[in-house]
């Protein structure tokens, strides 16, 4: 087992636009009026052209850095998603079918899985390593593991962003998600911050595991959204005290987490 600290969290969905709102909704508060997504880090001109998936990612990554009081250009990034920017994929595939020579060069370069971390690096001027990963159903937990190991092995803060956007019609026979959800966790080696939001002891066990039950958030069926598999971790961070969680990372191994939360960001 190894220790890692979480010093910042970002959240955005159609039901809560930041960590405070998430904590409030989680505690049973009213669903807030979510303001349009407008990540300030991206200059207005580029923001208009940036896809939803990029705007969500940059927004939650910025939230996490602000909460952790870590300079955004100081962090390495790990972005994860199962299906990536499905809206852009939908555009690309339709255009390639109908009139392939009319593919937009901007949409093409936005089609890389590392678009969000690329926009992040440009917006923050960061030359730090940027990664973009996927592990199908286990994308969220593998991104956490990848980020935690990178933070510890290289002794740097690592910003992990996990998101999934609402599915276009074509995908619905196998991925029928109506919600978009994005979250970012700023991970640091222990003692990097004197007052981390949460301290996590993690390890991999060679045993099967089911996903932990999802907490009630805004009355939404979050099981549809594959990024929301991390909701139990967010709930544990939001709740003062200690929580034990186990997530599958393959059909025969699991990531176990003991989350000790100060819970102080709830009213921060």
């Amino acid at each position: 087992m190894t220790d890692i600290d979480i010093v910042g969290v970002g959240v955005w969905s159609e039901y809560c636009s930041n960590w405070d709102e998430f904590c409030s909704v989680l505690a049973g508060g009213a669903i807030p009026q979510v303001t349009p997504l407008k990540p300030e880090l991206i200059p207005a001109k580029e923001r208009r052209r940036a896809p939803l998936s990029v705007k969500m990612a940059v927004e939650v990554m910025d939230q996490a850095c602000r909460m952790g009081a870590v300079g955004p250009s100081e962090v390495a990034t790990v972005f994860a998603s199962v299906y990536g920017d499905m809206r852009n994929t939908d555009y690309m595939c339709r255009t390639l079918d109908a009139a392939p020579r009319t593919v937009s060069p901007t949409k093409f370069h936005n089609s890389v899985h590392n678009a969000s971390t690329g926009y992040w690096a440009i917006a923050t001027g960061s030359h730090r390593p940027a990664n973009a990963v996927s592990a199908y159903l286990h994308s969220g937990t593998m991104a956490f593991l990848e980020g935690a190991i990178q933070a510890l092995e290289e002794d740097i803060p690592v910003l992990v962003c996990v998101e999934e956007i609402a599915a276009p019609a074509a995908f619905k026979p196998f991925y029928d998600s109506e919600q978009s959800f994005s979250t970012a966790l700023l991970l640091t080696p222990p003692a990097y911050s004197a007052s981390p939001l949460a301290s996590v002891r993690f390890g991999v066990r060679n045993e099967e595991s089911d996903y932990p039950e999802l907490p009630e958030v805004a009355g939404v069926n979050w099981s549809d959204n594959l990024a929301a598999t991390l909701l139990p971790l967010l709930a544990a961070i939001a709740t003062p005290g200690e929580a034990e969680l186990q997530f599958p990372i393959s059909s025969h191994s699991s990531l176990s987490l003991t989350v000790g939360s100060a819970g102080k960001a709830v009213d921060a």
Partner: peptide, 10 residues
Amino acid sequence: EGPSMTISTA
């Protein structure tokens, strides 16, 4: 059977 991950950074 170890952890399995795909990296996609162009």
